[in-house]
Design a protein around this nucleic acid. Structure first.
Lengths: 210, 210
DNA sequence: CACTATACCAAACAACCGTTTGTTTAGAAC
DNA sequence: GTTCTAAACAAACGGTTGTTTGGTATAGTG
């Protein structure tokens, strides 16, 4: 590449300053996350973004394509939120707890994008269902890694453990109301229920460093 | 009111023999459970019941009222399925396991009614949301009883335990495919993950009677 | 047999849906 | 200043939605 004073090719067309695309994504995320995909109309989204319904189709070919964009951003944000917890110092259990707390925070408090990933079922958008599943799997493998890193008794069903924990976390969206449990407290309770013995064979007074 | 040989008032009108109301409920349950409330049209339901859309309104005043009927029947069936497990002999842990297995079976395999209760969010039908929540709570209290009966270490957060377990069970609807895990196996794995110690402070070789 | 409420059909209603089409505006490039 | 294009507007499209209305066959009762 010879260093020209100015590029011959104008660089994929400089985007305009007042690009309202992120505004559309935000509006879509809000509605998709709170009302669901099927219950949200393009008019809802356009209205919140301050545009007309038809204008959305300049940016996205269809409602389902718009969902994919929001969904992908949601997965990206959850991954970004969870990543530092997975790289934190300490033992594998506390890292898992941190990941759960971050997962919950991204899901329940931080933004609407995370809620979309959990709430919207891929089947709701049949045309792009496969892509949504792939995006979700992408994240779940990250989470599965945290479970894999645990020092567990041999012959423990780690898959069941992952399914159980992730299910409990995701379902919290249906009953969570701000105030009672914070994501941090909830994550600690859940992980502790798994790590510490509850059965009658193991005495409850085993000390733990918290 | 003079005691006549036969009642003067014809007794709330004897229902006709060929009453297709259960057929409507079955069709509605199937669609609500598999596609969701908003994605199901009255024409879908009427078509499967072999009727015209308008005919449904003889039996139900609105789509949301129809949902309430299906939802109530779903809750009833889950309760009926779980009840024997809660009354079974044995310790509280095995009773909880049985309840989880029954809950899962009603949710994943038995019929469409159970799926409706888990899948349909009360907010999807705003007009009757309160009634749906009340119905769901009705069952959850039954389940909470099973958790309450567990012999747990003092200061255990039983509410968190209930939320975690019920969340894990309900979320299974999103990933469950017949074949890999059976409801019985899954319930056993989940309960065992809670009962048995996983943490490093308690040795894994503690024997359990299964 | 006559009567009445039941359980449906047939057809339409207004509202809303996702999407398309043609046109206009605003900013950058030459 | 002209040209080009990104980014919007304005208005409609056909189709589907939940629901209503009016009529009708039928089964059970007196």
């Amino acid at each position: 590449m010879p260093a020209a004073a100015r590029p011959l090719i104008p660089l994929p067309a400089a985007p305009r300053a007042n690009n309202r695309l992120p505004l559309i994504l935000d509006a879509a995320a809000r509605f998709f996350g709170r009302k669901g995909f099927g219950y949200t109309s393009m008019r809802d989204i356009a209205g919140m973004a301050g545009m007309l319904p038809g204008s959305l189709y300049y940016h996205f070919a269809s409602k389902e394509d718009l969902l994919v964009a929001v969904y992908a951003e949601g997965v990206r944000r959850i991954k970004v939120a969870v990543a530092p917890a997975l790289a934190a110092p300490g033992d594998a259990w506390s890292r898992l707890e941190g990941a759960c707390a971050a997962h919950l925070a991204a899901l329940l408090e931080d933004s609407d994008y995370g809620q979309v990933v959990i709430r919207v079922r891929p089947d709701d958008a049949p045309e792009v269902a496969a892509r949504l599943v792939a995006l979700r799997d992408e994240y779940e493998q990250v989470f599965a890694g945290a479970v894999q890193a645990l020092p567990l008794p041999p012959r423990t069903d780690r898959r069941a453990l992952k399914l159980m924990l992730l299910g409990a976390l995701n379902w919290s969206q249906t009953w969570y109301r701000p105030g009672r449990y914070s994501p941090q407290v909830l994550a600690r309770r859940f992980v502790r229920l798994l790590r510490d013995p509850l059965g009658p064979d193991c005495p409850p007074d085993v000390p733990h460093r918290t």
